[in-house]
Design a protein around this nucleic acid. Structure first.
Lengths: 160, 160
DNA sequence: GCGAGATCTTGACCGGTTCAAGATAACGGG
DNA sequence: CCCGTTATCTTGAACCGGTCAAGATCTCGC
């Protein structure tokens, strides 16, 4: 988790004004990777009491547009954010508890960027989501209830 | 689009009761690949007037659970469904108009199924989403300005 | 320090999806 | 072929993540 000065610099470099809510939210995203918006609101308020949820939404959008954070949104789950950007990494999602971990692209570079048939589309990104079951859920413990992966509701067994 | 008898058989084989709403919805999914729920409701009502939207939601869930249809849900967009299941194909999504086309996996088999580090997860599926711009949007639509719809995806004119 | 304009607060609102209770009808057994 | 059981459908309303809008506040360049 970078110091405030560093976070502030990142904001300034991105052409964004440096405000308390932005510092708090950006720090929160760094501290809680893969958190949902709700969790980030809580985390941001821990540092800056009273930030409106609307401000958090606005800030997250601004940061996302600026490329400082990345929004990930596994189908069936709500929006989550992470501060790791710029590299070609993907995600591994547990079907049961919706926990997320980072994985680097399987083949090293970015092989999936070339589709077999582009249908005339101009492709600029290939996103990969690995679905599976995490070790905790494999062991039989239904709710891992980690601080980070606190998802409001589980994706009920839509597909085993 | 299969005949009704065929659709009915698919339902029965999946252990589901054969009902009018299910026949209508399943046929609708076959007829309108990549449609959203709203569109499927309309399509289903064209065949069976008066189906409740709730029935369509229930049926879609049942069909999805049974593996007869597949739900796809690009981040920032609403749920869509397709009847092509069982093969290893992926999707190409336009950032501007959210249109979707099918693409087969780039390398033929299923290379993306192996992550570089599985973190102890048991992976059962790798989903690939290609992002880009469709030919129509490339040609006709003059985007309002620079910032593309990356991440904060606006299906249509909700920009300033 | 000052002013213009971006950003935050407050509070209402929206659309997709789900929940709940009762009516209906599909299917297996008699 | 009829009946009872029970999954499924209808109706209607709630829910929830996220957005919109208006006005107050703060940042930053000058």
């Amino acid at each position: 988790m970078p110091a405030h000065t560093e976070v502030a610099r990142a904001l300034r470099d991105a052409g964004l004004r440096v405000t308390q809510p932005r510092l708090a939210v950006l720090a929160a995203v760094h501290d809680h990777p893969h958190s949902d918006t709700e969790g980030l609101i809580v985390a941001a308020r821990a540092e800056l009491a009273g930030v409106s949820h609307q401000a958090v939404y606005d800030v997250l959008r601004a940061l996302t547009d600026a490329g400082l954070v990345r929004r990930i949104q596994p189908p069936g789950s709500i929006a989550r954010y992470e501060a790791r950007v710029g590299d070609n990494h993907h995600h591994l999602v547990c079907r049961h508890c919706a926990s997320i971990v980072d994985v680097d692209c399987a083949v090293g570079e970015r092989p999936c960027l070339t589709a077999s048939d582009d249908h005339g589309y101009v492709i600029d990104e290939a996103e990969v989501v690995y679905w599976g079951t995490c070790p905790a859920c494999l062991a039989g413990s239904p709710p891992p209830s980690s601080s980070d992966t606190r998802s409001t509701h589980h994706p009920e067994g839509s597909e085993p």
